[in-house]
Design a protein around this nucleic acid. Sequence first.
DNA 1: GATGAATGAGCGTTCATTCAT
DNA 2: GATGAATGAACGCTCATTCAT
Lengths: 213, 213, 213, 213
Amino acid sequence: MTTRARREREKEERRRSILRAAREVFLDGDNGFHRVTVDEVAARAEVSKGTVYLYFESKETILALLLLEGLERLLARLQEAYGAAEPLPADERLRRLGMAYFDFFAAAPEYFRLLVAMDRGRFPDAVKPEVYRQVLSASLDGLALVAQAVQQGVDEGLFRPCDVRSAAGILWATLNGSLELLEHPLRREMLGVEQETFYRAALETVIEGLARR
Amino acid sequence: MTTRARREREKEERRRSILRAAREVFLDGDNGFHRVTVDEVAARAEVSKGTVYLYFESKETILALLLLEGLERLLARLQEAYGAAEPLPADERLRRLGMAYFDFFAAAPEYFRLLVAMDRGRFPDAVKPEVYRQVLSASLDGLALVAQAVQQGVDEGLFRPCDVRSAAGILWATLNGSLELLEHPLRREMLGVEQETFYRAALETVIEGLARR
Amino acid sequence: MTTRARREREKEERRRSILRAAREVFLDGDNGFHRVTVDEVAARAEVSKGTVYLYFESKETILALLLLEGLERLLARLQEAYGAAEPLPADERLRRLGMAYFDFFAAAPEYFRLLVAMDRGRFPDAVKPEVYRQVLSASLDGLALVAQAVQQGVDEGLFRPCDVRSAAGILWATLNGSLELLEHPLRREMLGVEQETFYRAALETVIEGLARR
Amino acid sequence: MTTRARREREKEERRRSILRAAREVFLDGDNGFHRVTVDEVAARAEVSKGTVYLYFESKETILALLLLEGLERLLARLQEAYGAAEPLPADERLRRLGMAYFDFFAAAPEYFRLLVAMDRGRFPDAVKPEVYRQVLSASLDGLALVAQAVQQGVDEGLFRPCDVRSAAGILWATLNGSLELLEHPLRREMLGVEQETFYRAALETVIEGLARR
DNA sequence: GATGAATGAGCGTTCATTCAT
DNA sequence: GATGAATGAACGCTCATTCAT
């Protein structure tokens, strides 16, 4: 009985260890996610290539799970940032959501790349629909949170009436674009601005853009 | 001397012809730029594979030059859209710039993908810093145009005083983010909105966000 | 002692159950016997993969035993078809044997493929000589039945005197060749004939060829 | 000019050399054709794996071409054996065709295996339809030759009227079955007969079976 | 006796790059 | 300057077999 439980635990540990190895390869490489190789992941996890496939269906599945993991952590942070229990003005909620988003991806920019890459290449084909749906669903949940804040703003007369889901999407797009734009040092130099400063300004601009005059 | 000149000219022609072939392959493929192979480019240009490497350092360099070319065309369109000769209000200029940007990438999404990919994969290593800088410089020129329109808006009291270069960057980031966000059908579905509609709304939101109250 | 006997019995049952699972996988697949994997057999038998190897030396051994089983069933059918108890003319016996052979393999072409494959691939190395000999012996028994019918024909003056074992072998070769030839749709098309019609004609031709003039 | 010609020649030589290497791997191995590995072929030809794919589309194509080569040689031998220019009785023609067939495959039994294998596995998918058709066409030409001899026999009253194409197929099936049956030493032992003796007897039996009484 | 996690050699195929001619 | 044949590392994935527990 104990044996069985231990087995189970070890298996889960191994699984995690492969996932961790994948994350390391994925995050370490200066190369970006498409340089993640099953060979490399296996080597880093100190298991054979076959073992990797014992735990995961495909390379893409591993990356998708990695992403999902990230998104779930992100979502938790966003929910925390939203501060549902606190009586906050809508713009403040958006500010907090935006900065939580920033903190998350500033800490792990590769997740951001992975999120962006998810639509491309072999992903849609190689990843089980279920996993794919989970990824999309996590994204949707995050978006819903933003939309909720926008709705609050509209309801309270702070924001102009609008399609709140689109508005949420616009904020999302802006924040993504800001993260991406300044990811490269040369572009930061070009704009002569620090990433966080720029990001905050972008966030404020969109919030301002939603505001009732 | 004449011979030398002719030689030079022929060489340049060959170079252009390879680049043109690369562009054809690049734009033809239904699969995106990462399907561009040196074999195919050489075949299309009717030269040997070796010759391609005689004129270009690497496949990535070719793609970078292609992008540069594209950016230059984009810049021309932006300049046209800016309408320097016409007496236009600043917000209208931004609107025109934004839609020219949209039109360009809607017509050739591959360029957008290439632009996004530029920071990643083998590009940073395989592309000479000089070429890289040229790409950035083309971006800068575009940005300057946007900044100029913002400056006009600030000067005329339409927009709030601000760091115009940052403001231009914010608009840019938003538009890029919007293009990227909606590139994938599933995300379009998720937002329940058409790409152009969303893009326009994002553009308006940022313009609004810049406006003086 | 009783325990020992029970153990023995259980072991045999387990063995049979694995073999049955293997047969199911073997006959299920649309893809032929080379799609049989140990994983699948183990899963179907609801035992671990290790257990499979506890009872059988190799995958090839399992397949060989499967074939042996099949051949034994075939032999039973041939004996029935022979109709030892009935007073039949020799040619009729051959006809019945031939058609029983056809029916067997038409119903389970995989067995035929396996029989053909037996000499090839990893089989000769991976299968114990003993098992191999058993397979051959089963074939011999079938052959003996055919030879017996031929002998009857010779004795009764219906067939020309000949080496009856060779004659039986010739019939066997013809029937095998016919089955194999027409297994592929394209070759059926090429000959413009249906499998059973062709097979019957082949059977008759050889019977005729054995007949006294 | 000479250079060009030499290049061409060398290329053809290389191609042949890879094909020869493939044949060696294919014929040498005790393993049968499905153990033919691109790695092995490349090693034997002393080229890199990539080079193999420079000359051939796929492994299956190589094997198909090998087979085609064999079939063409076989066909030439059959035509010679048929002796169109000589005034031969139909049964003698069949005898000569049959023995030419035997000689060919006795000398290179692997070709026989390859021919049989051609219908299976990845062949139909992995081989260009054109090559596939050529293989079938070569088979058909051989069959036509046999059918022609049978027709002659029917016309001359030596053979019973019959569907000559089916009759040719029956002979073919018998000969194939005989070759296959006795390929394995253990089966030869089992029948207590030498391969050629058996084969001749089978050939005679079918000829006899076609004969008018 | 039974398990099932782990192995690792093996597969066919691709393609950017090099270099002898 | 131009060629194009050759390279070879890399890729994701499979599966029969082993062995510590």
